[in-house]
């Protein structure tokens, strides 16, 4: 049971890092970024390619930097020019981008599944209350916890964090207070994409890499964002941990219903609290 709970934390941690990027982008732009799953996928492939030469930390850094640049480009070239359009236009464009990036990954890395090895420094297992658990999975939990802590401190204590929180509540009014929300948006989308890239890289040794790997986690990330409360960072954290547990325990105890459970949870939460766990709180 302990191992299953820890595995749930691993998956919940990965989901959190991906979905918090979606939350950041939704909060500021009020759009659902369908390309976010493909940013996760690109992060996994970039990490896979760099890890062979630069090791795990080099891969993590490279994925974060490359995806941050992709995110900044996405905001400047697509999201900002479309900000006055109907949100459905942006949704369709980002969905199209998801397909393009999947084809791009297929072109560069091929269709076959790739497997990234566990970094040597984190190989092996440790005993936790008499149960063996892989060190690398503990590292994933630690990275997710660090991301959550770092993001929370950044949002609470930095000027940009203050503008992000204000923009998440009301972007137009924040702009009218004199804040350059376009500049904040570039930072936020780049950060969200970098987090997706980090998540992709650290998940590479746990998952098989394929061009379509982003689609599955995207759907569960959407569930996290909706259950947590659209635009809520704390809500996304709680929802990711809960869904990680539900997902994992479901796979073990009710495998025939495992894929349904997150959706049923979402329906239940929306009936109980239509605005999600955290409501409108940022």
């Amino acid at each position: 049971m302990l191992v299953q709970i820890l595995n749930g934390l691993v998956y919940g941690g990965l989901l959190y890092i991906v979905s918090v990027g979606l939350v950041l982008i939704f909060g500021l732009r009020r759009i659902v970024n369908f390309a976010h799953g493909s940013l996760f996928m690109l992060g996994a492939y970039v990490g896979f390619s760099v890890a062979a030469m630069g090791g795990f930390w080099g891969a993590l850094l490279a994925a974060a930097i490359v995806l941050a640049l992709v995110g900044a480009l996405l905001d400047i070239a697509i999201l900002q020019p479309l900000q006055r359009e109907d949100p459905i236009v942006t949704v369709l464009v980002t969905f199209g981008l998801l397909l393009i990036l999947e084809d791009f990954a297929q072109f560069v890395w091929g269709k076959d599944f790739l497997k990234s090895p566990v970094p040597t420094m984190f190989s092996g297992s440790v005993l936790i209350f008499g149960e063996s658990f892989p060190v690398y999975r503990l590292v994933v939990i630690a990275v997710a916890a660090l991301v959550a802590l770092g993001l929370s401190v950044w949002l609470r204590l930095s000027k940009i964090g203050l503008y992000v929180r204000a923009s998440s509540a009301d972007p137009l009014t924040t702009a009218m207070q004199g804040v350059n929300t376009d500049r904040v948006s570039v930072i936020v989308v780049a950060l969200g994409a970098a987090l997706a890239g980090i998540s992709g890289t650290i998940s590479a040794p746990l998952l098989a890499l394929s061009p379509s790997m982003g689609s599955y986690i995207l759907i569960e990330s959407f569930i996290v964002v909706v259950v947590g409360g659209l635009g809520s960072f704390a809500g996304a954290f709680i929802a990711a941990i809960v869904i990680g547990q539900v997902h994992n325990l479901g796979l073990v105890y009710v495998p025939w219903a495992a894929t349904m459970i997150p959706f049923l949870l979402m329906v239940g939460v929306l009936i109980w609290r239509p605005t999600g766990i955290a409501g409108s709180h940022v």
């Binding site: 203050l162 503008y163 929180r165 204000a166 509540a169 009301d170 009014t173 924040t174 207070q177 004199g178 804040v179 409108s280 709180h281 940022v282």
Partner: peptide, 19 residues
């Protein structure tokens, strides 16, 4: 109550960006 989660001074800090 446009920014309900922000403190009074944080909100004034944001507005002071234009000043």
């Amino acid at each position: 109550n446009i920014f309900p989660d922000l403190t009074v001074i944080d909100q004034l800090d944001i507005a002071s960006r234009a000043a």
